[in-house]
């Protein structure tokens, strides 16, 4: 339906879980400025797709 995309910037920012899951693998860079909370905030990406 009328979903947001680079070519449809006015589209609805509503995404279902299958659409969202496509991007999990690519996001390996650690976000800036995370607090130092040992054993909670990880240094290396730990990509864990949901087990169906």
């Amino acid at each position: 339906e009328d979903q947001w995309s680079p070519m449809n910037p006015e589209g609805k920012k509503q995404y279902n879980r299958d659409f969202l899951l496509q991007f999990q693998q690519d996001c390996k860079d650690k976000p800036e400025g995370l607090p130092h909370i040992p054993d909670i905030v990880l240094d290396k990406a730990d990509i864990r797709p949901p087990s169906f």
């Binding site: 991007f23 690519d26 976000p31 905030v41 990509i47 864990r48």
Partner: peptide
């Protein structure tokens, strides 16, 4: 209670989620 970070993109969510401990291990 501590805030870890905020995000407003799909990619921002995953970058965060991939760098925090899974809930079951808390």
């Amino acid at each position: 209670l501590r805030i870890i970070t905020a995000f407003d993109t799909v990619e921002g969510f995953w970058a965060l989620f991939n760098h925090i401990q899974s809930a079951s291990k808390l």
